[in-house]
Amino acid sequence: MTIRDLVRRFSSSPSTLAATSAATLATAVTGSLATDVESRWYRRRELPPWQPPRLAFPIVWTTLYADIAVTSAASLTRLRQTDPRAARRFGVALGVNLAANAGWTVLFFRARRPSVATVGALALAASSADLARRASAADRAHGWALAPYAVWCTFATALSADIWRRNGDG
Score class of each variant (00 low, 15 high):
10 F>T: 09
10 F>V: 05
14 P>L: 07
16 T>K: 12
16 T>Y: 01
17 L>F: 14
18 A>V: 04
18 A>N: 09
18 A>K: 15
20 T>F: 00
20 T>D: 00
22 A>N: 07
23 A>H: 03
23 A>D: 00
23 A>K: 05
24 T>Q: 15
26 A>W: 07
26 A>N: 04
27 T>K: 09
29 V>H: 14
32 S>L: 12
33 L>N: 10
34 A>S: 13
34 A>V: 08
38 E>L: 07
38 E>C: 01
38 E>Y: 05
39 S>F: 03
42 Y>I: 02
44 R>A: 14
44 R>G: 12
45 R>Y: 01
46 E>R: 15
48 P>S: 00
48 P>G: 00
49 P>A: 15
49 P>I: 03
50 W>V: 03
51 Q>C: 00
52 P>C: 00
52 P>Y: 04
53 P>N: 13
54 R>E: 12
55 L>Y: 12
55 L>S: 11
56 A>G: 04
57 F>D: 12
58 P>G: 06
58 P>T: 06
58 P>E: 02
58 P>H: 07
60 V>P: 10
61 W>F: 06
62 T>P: 09
62 T>Y: 03
63 T>R: 11
63 T>I: 13
64 L>H: 07
65 Y>W: 07
66 A>W: 07
66 A>M: 06
69 A>I: 00
70 V>Q: 02
71 T>Q: 09
71 T>N: 10
72 S>N: 11
72 S>Y: 01
72 S>W: 02
